[in-house]
C-alpha cells in the first residue's frame, strides 16, 4: 500500500476551453482554476453541454487550451510531447470502438503501446502489467473473447483495464457509466475508488451519477453556469454549490440527506 500525499498532481491556471475556428474562438468555459491531489478519486459533475468532455479533452492534452494552461506534475501539458503524455495520462472515452476483431487481451495490450518497441513486441514486463490490469478489473476470464461479445459493463471494465495497462499516474474517464444499470454503475464507481486508493493513481471521471459521486468521490468538481466549484462534499455543501448545479424547478439538493431529490409538484 502506498501512502497518500497531498501533492497537487493536476493543476489548471486561468484555463479557457473551447474550439477555435479560423480566427474566432468559441469559448465553452472560462477561467478554470483547479487543483487535484495525487491518488484521489475525483468526479466532474455538470449538466449536459456545459463542457465536461471538452474539459477532459483539454486536461488530457488531446485538445489545445484557448487560454491559460494545464499542469500535470508541474509540467505544462501543452508543451509535453504526445509520446511522453501517453506514459502519464490515459483515457477511457465515451465513443464506441470501431468494428474490429480485437480480443480483450489485444485491446488491453494496446495500452502498452507507449512502452513497446517499433514492432509492438510485448516484453515480460508488459505481460505482467497486462495480466495485473486484467486481474484487478476481474476481466481475466474474458481475455480471449472479442470485445463486441461483451456486455456494456464488461466492456467498460476492459477499457479501464486498458487504461491501467498504460501505467499512467492520471486516468481520465468520460462518463464511464453512461449505459450501465445501477448495479454495474456502482461496481464501476467502487472499482475506481479502490483503484485510486490501492495504486495512488489519480482518477478523474465525468459523470451524471451525482448522488453516487457525492457519496464516493474524494473530491467533486461542479461545473455550473456561473463558476466552477471544487472540493469535498462538505466544503461544497457549506458553499451551497449544489444548488447551482441544476435549475430548481425539478430537482433540489437536500442538505440533510446530502442527495439530490426529485421535486414533486402538489
Amino acid at each position: 500500500m502506498s501512502k497518500k500525499t497531498n501533492h497537487n498532481t493536476l493543476k489548471t491556471k486561468d484555463l479557457s476551453i473551447g474550439y477555435s475556428k479560423k480566427d474566432t474562438n468559441h469559448i465553452v468555459y472560462n477561467n478554470i482554476n483547479l487543483k487535484v491531489s495525487k491518488g484521489s478519486f475525483v468526479a466532474l459533475l455538470g449538466k449536459n453541454g456545459i463542457g465536461k468532455s471538452t474539459l477532459l479533452r483539454t486536461l488530457s492534452g488531446v485538445q489545445k487550451p484557448l487560454n491559460g494552461s494545464v499542469f500535470f506534475n508541474d509540467k505544462d501539458v501543452s508543451s509535453t510531447s504526445n509520446s511522453e503524455l501517453a506514459t502519464q495520462i490515459s483515457m477511457v472515452l465515451t465513443e464506441r470502438l470501431p468494428e474490429s476483431q480485437l480480443t480483450v487481451f489485444e485491446l488491453v495490450a494496446l495500452g502498452r503501446q507507449p512502452y513497446t518497441n517499433w514492432v509492438d513486441k510485448l516484453s515480460n514486463d508488459d505481460m505482467q502489467k497486462i495480466s495485473w490490469a486484467l486481474e484487478i478489473t476481474e476481466t481475466k476470464s474474458l481475455q480471449s473473447k472479442r470485445f463486441y461479445e461483451l456486455s456494456d459493463g464488461q466492456l467498460q471494465r476492459v477499457l479501464i483495464a486498458r487504461a491501467l495497462a498504460q501505467d499512467t499516474d492520471l486516468i481520465l474517464l468520460d462518463e464511464p457509466t453512461a449505459h450501465l444499470d445501477m448495479h454495474h454503475t456502482i461496481k464501476i464507481f467502487t472499482l475506481l475508488k479502490s483503484l485510486a486508493e490501492k495504486t495512488n493513481k489519480t482518477i478523474l471521471i465525468s459523470s451524471h451519477e451525482v448522488n453516487l459521486s457525492i457519496q464516493l468521490a474524494d473530491q467533486l468538481i461542479l461545473m455550473t453556469d456561473d463558476k466552477i466549484y471544487a472540493g469535498s462534499t462538505k466544503e461544497l455543501v457549506s458553499l451551497n454549490a449544489f444548488d447551482q448545479l441544476f435549475s430548481k424547478d425539478l430537482i433540489n439538493f437536500n442538505i440533510d440527506l446530502e442527495q439530490f431529490v426529485f421535486q414533486k409538484k402538489n
Binding site: S90, G111, W118
Partner: peptide
C-alpha cells in the same frame, strides 16, 4: 509497412484513443 504496424493497431481503437497512446 513495419513502421506502421503500431499506428495501424492503435487506430483500431479510433483516432482519439490512438492519440492518447502517443501516436501522431
Amino acid at each position: 509497412c513495419f513502421f506502421i504496424i503500431k499506428p495501424l493497431n492503435s487506430l483500431l481503437l479510433g483516432e482519439n484513443y490512438a492519440k492518447s497512446l502517443g501516436i501522431s
